[in-house]
């Protein structure tokens, strides 16, 4: 599994499902600034778990780790390497 692919898939998911049409999502985009709420963050975690067949444990989901798509993807990548 490639970290860049996770980042790209995640940015596409956020763009197509969670944010308004004209919003660009980059791996470094601050998700809280966009107004992504608890509900959206859970959708993101569930998307990654389904798509990449991993489990993101509660302890890795810190505020800093869910701040950007890049950070969340890094967590997902790290979990995938454990399996």
């Amino acid at each position: 599994m490639d970290l860049k692919i996770i980042e790209s898939e995640l940015c596409n998911f956020i763009k197509e499902n969670l944010v308004a049409e004209n919003i660009d999502i980059l791996p470094e985009t601050d998700l809280a600034v966009l107004g992504l709420d608890s509900f959206s963050l859970i959708e993101i975690v569930l998307f990654l778990e389904r798509k990449f067949e991993i489990e993101l444990p509660d302890e890795v989901l810190t505020t800093e780790n869910v701040r950007t798509a890049k950070n969340i993807s890094a967590c997902a990548f790290a979990e995938s390497q454990k399996n």
């Binding site: 308004a20 049409e21 966009l34 107004g35």
Partner: peptide
């Protein structure tokens, strides 16, 4: 209640765009 508006946008301002958990 959960706001159903897409994030990063304020539209639509008018009307109720909420569902529930």
């Amino acid at each position: 209640p959960q706001d159903q508006r897409l994030k990063g946008s304020i539209k639509p301002v008018m009307g109720n765009h909420i569902s529930y958990l």
